[in-house]
Simulated scan of single mutants.
Amino acid sequence: MTEPNTPGSRWSDLDRPPLNAAGLRRALIRPGSLWTALDVVDTTGSTNSDLAARVSAGGGAAPAEGTVLVAEEQTAGRGRLDRNWTAPARSGLFFSVLLTPGGDIPVERWGWLPLLTGVAVASGLARAAGVDTSLKWPNDLLVAVDGRERKAGGILAERAGEHAVVVGVGLNVTLRADELPVPTAGSLALADALSLDRETLLRAVLRSIEQWYGDWRAAGGDPAASRLQEAYAAGCATLGRAVRAELPGDRELTGEAVAIDGDGRLVLATESGVREPAAAGDIVHLRPADTD
């Protein structure tokens, strides 16, 4: 492999310096912290898949809760329903964390973990990047580019064994317009973020996840008592809009998104006056009601 920052290396973009793994460990791993290990790899298919595989391998090498795996580049990153997520090397933050809510948190409340991560990422970016990030239910991170909402990131939570959840985050940081996977995507750079330093952003996001996860666990996973439900609703761009949920079997549910219920489901008020909850796992696509 060509060494970083040498002529001809795909890692030689000086506007996209590599992450300093040792510095990140010094800043984040400390006694009493959620974060227990942090590795940065040059490239991988999917940090979620890699971390889940380490959990499945078990034995003495099994990772502890709070393990963080970061990739400078993902070649087979996945979104919800196995949709692809790719970006140029070192142009974003691509990482996964291992969480073990344990027996003290009812399994039915684990569905709040991707929503919790969304709130944490948005609040961390607000502090560190000075950019207003909103949330499209259930797992998209939106920024404003030229007055329009654009998807700049996504979250994917997956069970890893009986007691663990791997939560992955992909966030476009320095992508230029000509690098976007689709014209409707965005990045922190295109949203005029005050900081594009990936180490600063990653530290802020992980500290925010630690805080929100700690509060949620202390409340027994109760989204109301931990104020997670309130915070998610406040930052959710989906609420108050007419949407069309495409369901399996070519079924559709159309209505105004009016609430996030205690199970993290999106509640739609239909024209018939009925309030219908829809779970993330039941929705293939969620679109504005006036689009095809």
Rank of each mutant, 00 (worst) to 15 (best):
Q74I: 09
Q74M: 09
T75I: 11
T75D: 14
A76Y: 09
A76R: 15
G77A: 06
G77M: 13
G77C: 11
G77R: 06
R78E: 12
G79Y: 09
L81R: 15
D82T: 12
R83F: 11
R83Q: 12
N84G: 02
W85I: 09
W85T: 05
T86E: 13
T86F: 09
A87G: 13
P88G: 08
A89I: 14
A89S: 13
R90Y: 01
S91V: 06
S91M: 06
S91N: 10
G92S: 05
L93G: 03
F94Q: 06
F95I: 01
S96W: 14
V97A: 12
V97F: 08
V97T: 14
L98A: 05
L98F: 05
L99R: 03
T100E: 15
T100K: 14
T100H: 04
P101I: 07
P101V: 02
P101Y: 06
P101K: 00
P101H: 01
G102K: 00
G102Q: 02
G103M: 02
D104Q: 15
D104K: 15
I105P: 00
V107P: 02
V107R: 13
E108V: 13
E108C: 02
R109E: 07
R109H: 13
W110S: 01
G111V: 13
G111R: 14
W112M: 10
W112C: 02
L113D: 07
L113H: 04
P114D: 08
P114C: 10
L115S: 15
L115T: 12
L116M: 11
T117Y: 04
G118I: 13
V119E: 05
V119S: 02
V119L: 09
A120F: 10
A120H: 11
A120L: 10
A122E: 13
A122S: 15
S123P: 01
S123I: 00
G124R: 06
G124S: 06
G124Y: 09
G124A: 13
A126W: 00
A126S: 12
R127D: 15
A128H: 07
A128N: 08
A128R: 07
A129I: 04
A129W: 02
A129V: 03
G130D: 02
G130N: 14
V131M: 01
V131G: 00
D132W: 03
D132I: 00
T133D: 01
T133C: 14
T133R: 00
S134F: 00
S134Y: 02
S134V: 13
L135F: 05
L135T: 06
L135A: 03
K136C: 03
K136F: 03
K136D: 00
K136M: 09
W137C: 00
W137G: 07
P138T: 15
P138I: 10
P138L: 12
N139D: 02
N139Q: 01
N139H: 08
N139K: 01
D140Q: 08
L141Y: 04
L141S: 09
L142V: 03
L142P: 01
V143P: 02
V143N: 00
V145K: 05
V145I: 13
D146Q: 14
G147C: 07
G147R: 06
G147Y: 01
G147H: 03
R148I: 01
R148V: 03
R148K: 15
